[in-house]
């Protein structure tokens, strides 16, 4: 799978998850089981830089979601 396909798969997977909007990096590893973890984390960072994804942080933990999706400044239920 090349980077463009992987990016698409990430976006589609995130869009299909309707119950929550923010995910751990490990969830992204699971979306792309055949890719090296380091490569997935680099890809995620590229997508943040490009403005497709955004980081959310509690201060101690970082989560990742589609830019603008879900609450911007609070924890969602169950996180």
């Amino acid at each position: 799978m090349d980077d463009a396909e992987a990016k698409n798969l990430i976006i589609e997977t995130l869009k299909s998850k309707t119950n929550k909007s923010k995910f751990y990096l490990k969830d992204f590893y699971a979306f792309l089981p055949d890719m090296k973890k380091m490569a997935v984390s680099k890809l995620v960072n590229t997508m943040v830089a490009e403005g497709t994804l955004e980081y959310w942080s509690s201060g101690s933990t970082t989560m990742i979601g589609l830019k603008g999706a879900g609450k911007q400044h609070a924890t969602e239920e169950g996180e």
């Binding site: 830089a49 980081y55 959310w56 942080s57 509690s58 970082t62 609070a74």
Partner: peptide, 11 residues
């Protein structure tokens, strides 16, 4: 508790 993180290129 928490929020979107800061500046361009940094997480």
């Amino acid at each position: 508790h928490g929020g979107i993180v800061g500046v361009f290129g940094y997480g």
